[in-house]
Design a protein around this nucleic acid. Structure first.
Lengths: 344, 344
DNA sequence: CTGAAAGCGCTAACAG
DNA sequence: CTGTTAGCGCTTTCAG
């Protein structure tokens, strides 16, 4: 069901001017006599004409779309991020080509190739792979795009792309220090996988806080999860079984935090009377349910917004070489709701 | 930072053939001698060439993007829907231009105009406005797109677009009938606004189930909310204060359901011992937290998938006129977890 | 099998 | 102020 859309020359014909003039009123560039302008506008209206962005893109040799690649659109974090990105694109006549990689690296690379063919002007991406191994192929695909790339939340080893990240270290540091100030000494952490930077950083923040406060690091209190709910659940059960259990737990992300809460609830362990708790990332539903859990909270939508603003700056830059990589590191906020308290 | 991307003629030059031949190997149309084909492929590889979809679109006079317009990407429902849509576009070399209207009708119309300029091939949309008043302007904008439109979850009055909807009536009917079979007679409903079709339909299902089972409709048990958490919360408090309270409550959507649970929890009303409960729409977090609440569950991702498949069919259709509107109405599933029980 | 050439719809000099 | 014209990068006849 293809209906030939009407074109600029239809308008030219109908209003008895040249296509150049129509183009001029379309872009209100140069001066066009008010009278002819009206004629043209009238024709446009009557024929219900809308200029083709794709013809325009080809002619100007520049598009107005940007690519956004996320690992899982169902993760509330990315939902918010996209909202933040939209808030900027909307105001700048830019479109968003959205790709959901399902945390699948192959899919991701395919998407990037597709986006290249679409001649996107720039890319905001949260790479699926976030580990130490240097991925030359991946890097070259990204570089071959030849457009500005802004990394979001996850880094790409050895790349010099711009990026917006979160200071996981300081967030965790603050949380642990808060525990300490409350009087806790035996503090456990359910860490993320060390293959991911957020995982590593959160553990680093934990250790740093203990050390800086003169508390010895006790490896028995360090547990390694995989950011999924189940691991938070199982590790918490292990913690509860310890012979010298901690009095406080820090959980490195929202899903594991839910798992932890589930385990504590099932075991009738009260928070914070029997076990203090702080988690990384807000869990909106808990607040709704009146469960007061303290968290390290990230400015999610803001991360998307900032990423898009950086990209926008790049798009407006004149010079080709971007020696100065822009890497913004946002700070999380520690939100205390009482779950960090220590029984007096 | 614009770098002139390399073009088909660069490849032609390098491999010493005409652009036509390059185009042929790109689309493996016609026959190309194996030898020349290899030459071309080699050049493509060496120069890292990716054909421009936008030039191709202009030339073929057809794009490979579809528009997706949703009212709120942060609503888990739409996150799932988009996932469902992607699952189909991914396999068909189609791109998704995503727009989030924030439930703002003006924004929505602007997006549609923008999508028209982008020459999208088709549109999947959940309209912001879903009320009885006939909106001529809106309808004409949508029709002026001149591409197939598939409505998702919300209808547009007097339009003959394809669509994927959910049978709210039967879903609610089943839930209420389930209450009745459990022995409940005094059943309340927290309805959505009657200005929305889902709101109306769910109330209709409620009334129908009572009537069909010989139970008189008691207006005191019908409460009108607005689908937001707060209204569920407040109305539930009202219900608890009634002198002859119901023994069961049906809540018309997930957010109000949360509000209701919050109110019941705060008032120490046990579910289902003191009050039975069934809600519309799954709330994943509740399951995680071991709160067994029965719900009418929608096949969310499937709705997106089906919508996209309908659209795909339209794109592949030959004939211009689509007299036969395709309107698919999916059935929800009643998932029982015990909260519907009646105290013996 | 392959090349030349005419568009696709629009922009952007260049004249006038 | 306005019209003519040459592309933008690719596809697609039409010849050969």
């Amino acid at each position: 069901m293809i209906i030939a859309p009407i074109t600029i020359s239809d308008i030219a014909k109908k209003s008895k001017v040249s296509v150049a003039t129509v183009s001029r009123v379309l872009n209100d560039s140069d001066k066009v006599k008010e009278q002819t302008k009206e004629k043209v506008l009238k024709a446009i209206n009557e024929l219900n004409y809308a200029p083709s962005d794709i013809a325009r893109s080809l002619s100007r040799n520049i598009t107005n779309t940007i690519g956004v690649v996320v690992p899982d659109i169902n993760n509330p974090f990315f939902g918010q991020v996209i909202k933040g990105i939209s808030s900027v694109t909307d105001k700048n006549d830019l479109y968003m080509l959205l790709c959901d990689t399902d945390e699948n690296e192959e899919k991701e690379m395919k998407f990037i190739e597709m986006l290249k063919r679409q001649r996107i002007r720039g890319l905001i991406i949260t790479p699926t792979a976030d580990n130490d191994k240097f991925n030359a192929k991946y890097l070259s695909i990204l570089e071959n795009l030849n457009v500005p790339v802004v990394l979001l939340d996850r880094d790409v080893k050895y790349s010099k792309f711009d990026g917006v990240f979160l200071d996981s270290i300081s967030g965790t540091y603050d949380a642990i220090e808060c525990f300490i100030k409350e009087g806790h000494r035996k503090i456990a952490i359910i860490s993320g996988p060390l293959s991911s930077k957020p995982g590593r950083d959160r553990l680093r923040g934990y250790k740093k806080a203990l050390t800086m406060n003169g508390i010895e690091i006790d490896d028995r209190y360090i547990f390694y999860g995989d950011f999924r709910l189940e691991s938070g659940y199982e590790l918490s059960q292990e913690i509860l079984k310890m012979e010298d259990p901690p009095t406080a737990i820090f959980v490195s992300n929202n899903m594991m935090n839910l798992g932890c809460i589930k385990a504590l609830t099932e075991a009738n362990v009260r928070i914070p009377e029997d076990m203090a708790l702080i988690g990384f990332d807000e869990i909106e539903l808990l607040n709704i349910m009146n469960m007061d859990i303290s968290v390290v909270s990230r400015p999610t939508a803001q991360m998307g917004e900032v990423a898009m603003k950086i990209l926008l700056d790049r798009l407006n830059e004149q010079k080709i070489d971007n020696q100065d990589t822009k890497r913004i590191i946002l700070l999380p906020t520690l939100i205390l709701r009482g779950s960090e308290k220590k029984e007096k």
